[in-house]
Design a protein around this nucleic acid. Structure first.
Length: 281
DNA sequence: ACGAGAACCTGTTTGC
DNA sequence: TGCAAACAGGTTCTCG
């Protein structure tokens, strides 16, 4: 489900309910997510006060006053819902973890496919944590330029689409936003990754930043199960140029769909890619 | 060393 | 209508 914009939206939604609040109760109902939840998770967190809720790539980082960091990944189908005091319904079969604050607010982690995970890290050495150590640059940072991106792509012989999904190249992109960014940059998903440098690199870095910025502003994209923490839907899905639009007209090409076939869908490394063969080279 | 494919798991949509 | 296959926003392991 969630790529960078969705995770950032969730972060914004949960931060006001966590920061400055003590975790009164942490209920773990199911430990077997993508990897087993750490032993003693509840004991480690209960009684601690949250000092910050941050994001790195697609990970949420929940920092406590004693230097513990709860690392959360939502996988494909994970979400976090805020339930007001006295308003938490009985947990369903996919409601694996509840964080209950001193204000009585429940933050409920739900994940039907269980591809998500949680782990604990230490504030002092968080950058060395195995989940975070190898991650590429944050695309919304000032430091993310065409040059930086081109350096990361140089020497790669696989398709550009596949390289951009690699979190060690750039952090936070997933299938939707890679397709959308490549469309905006006018670059073919099949192009050899290492051929992107110079002006093309700048174009691609700018397209990635722009699409992510717009998606964050829209509250992410709601396709099936994704919701903001408030329960509201994101609406960036209405701005897709190519994703999920196979056979439909490219927004910028006014050619006859019956003739050109419109947006093309191919499969790369087992995942759907959508693009306009006319505009993306 | 790199890249493609399978695996992990459940729910929903699509196609015969 | 009904059932089975395909597909889904991610990551990681294995194999060639």
């Amino acid at each position: 489900m969630p790529e960078l914009p969705e995770v950032e939206t969730v972060r914004c939604g949960i931060a006001p309910h966590l920061e400055g609040h003590r975790l009164a109760h942490v209920a773990v109902r199911r430990k077997d997510l993508r990897r087993p939840l750490p032993e003693g998770l509840s004991a480690r967190l209960e009684g601690r006060t949250v000092v910050a809720v941050e994001r790195r790539a697609k990970y949420l980082l929940i920092r406590t006053d004693d230097g513990a960091v709860l690392i959360v990944h939502l996988g494909m189908s994970g979400r976090i819902t805020i339930l007001g005091p006295g308003k938490a319904p009985p947990p369903g079969p996919h409601d694996h973890v509840d964080l209950v604050t001193d204000a009585g607010v429940t933050l409920r982690y739900t994940d039907p496919r269980r591809f998500g995970l949680m782990d604990l890290g230490d504030a002092g050495s968080l950058g060395d944590h195995p989940l975070l150590a190898g991650l590429g640059p944050e695309p919304l940072d000032e430091a993310f330029t065409g040059r930086v991106l081109a350096d990361r792509l140089s020497g790669k012989n696989g398709p550009l689409k596949t390289a951009l999904l690699d979190q060690t190249v750039v952090a936070g992109l997933g299938n939707i936003y890679v397709c959308e960014a490549l469309y905006r940059a006018g670059l073919s998903p099949r192009r050899k990754a290492g051929t992107v440098r110079g002006a093309r690199g700048e174009r691609l870095a700018g397209a990635i930043r722009a699409v992510l910025d717009e998606a964050v502003a829209a509250g992410g994209s709601s396709l099936r199960d994704y919701r903001q923490a408030s329960g509201d839907l994101g609406y960036f899905q209405f701005s897709f140029a190519v994703y999920g639009r196979a056979g439909q007209a490219c927004p910028a090409c006014d050619c006859d769909v019956a003739k050109t076939g419109g947006i093309t869908r191919i499969v790369q490394s087992g995942r759907s890619t959508f693009f306009c063969a006319k505009r993306q080279r």
